[in-house]
Amino acid sequence: PGLLEPTSCLIRVAKSAPTLGIAIEGGANTRQPLPRIVTIQRGGSAHNCGKLKVGHVILEVNGTTLRGKEHRAAARIIAEAFKAKEKDHVDFLVTEFN
């Protein structure tokens, strides 16, 4: 899953800070159908990782697709992946192709 996306890239974000530190916009039934990163906060786990970029569109989180998910559902999936104690990282499948 996701591997058919020609320009997609798997990025592992270690939970190195208390917050993930990204802002997202978009979701099903909006002009931006998949969540797009609009801000990366300095000092957050995403910033510390150094690979997530503003403009990345998030296709999957820990293998769960965000396709068809409305904004709040997508945000909840990301928040719960970061909160879950079973893993010390979150895997994002992202693309720069919008």
């Binding site: 917050t19 993930l20 530190g21 990204i22 802002a23 997202i24 916009e25 978009g26 979701g27 039934n29 909006t30 002009r31 931006q32 609009v38 801000t39 906060q41 904004h71 709040r72 945000a75 990301i78 928040a79 970061f82």
Partner: peptide
């Protein structure tokens, strides 16, 4: 393109 224009903008959530 016309369809895009009819879709609403999204809210932004900080995570």
């Amino acid at each position: 393109r016309e369809k895009r224009l009819t879709l609403p903008p999204s809210e932004i959530t900080l995570l």
